[in-house]
Amino acid sequence: MYTEPQLNTEFEKERPKLKSFLLRMTASVEDTEDLVQETYIKAHQKLSSFEGKSSLKTWLFAIASNLAKDLLRSKKRWPETVTDICREAALGNRDFLQNMMQVRMTSQQGNFEIKEHIAFCFACIGKSLPIEQQLALLLKEVYQFKVQEVAEILSVSEAMAKYYLHEARSKMISIFDKKCALINKEGACHQCTELNGIFNPKQKAQEEVMKIDMARMAQSKDKEELFDMRTKILQNLDPFNSGASELQLLHLQHNKKVMDNYLKET
Score class of each variant (00 low, 15 high):
108 Q>D: 07
115 K>M: 01
134 Q>V: 12
101 M>E: 00
104 R>D: 03
109 Q>A: 01
116 E>H: 15
93 N>Q: 01
112 F>A: 09
99 N>M: 02
87 R>L: 15
126 G>E: 11
109 Q>D: 02
135 L>K: 11
118 I>Y: 09
107 S>F: 02
133 Q>F: 10
136 A>L: 06
103 V>P: 02
129 L>H: 03
90 A>G: 05
93 N>Y: 13
102 Q>N: 12
128 S>P: 12
115 K>H: 08
137 L>I: 08
118 I>R: 06
136 A>F: 10
108 Q>V: 00
104 R>T: 11
88 E>W: 10
91 L>A: 08
93 N>V: 11
134 Q>L: 08
134 Q>K: 05
128 S>A: 00
135 L>C: 07
90 A>I: 04
124 C>H: 08
133 Q>E: 14
87 R>K: 11
129 L>K: 07
124 C>G: 03
133 Q>D: 08
107 S>N: 01
100 M>C: 11
105 M>A: 05
97 L>E: 09
113 E>Q: 10
91 L>W: 15
137 L>P: 07
101 M>F: 03
89 A>D: 12
92 G>D: 06
117 H>D: 15
129 L>P: 07
115 K>A: 01
112 F>I: 15
113 E>Y: 01
87 R>Y: 15
105 M>I: 11
87 R>D: 04
124 C>Y: 01
110 G>S: 01
137 L>V: 04
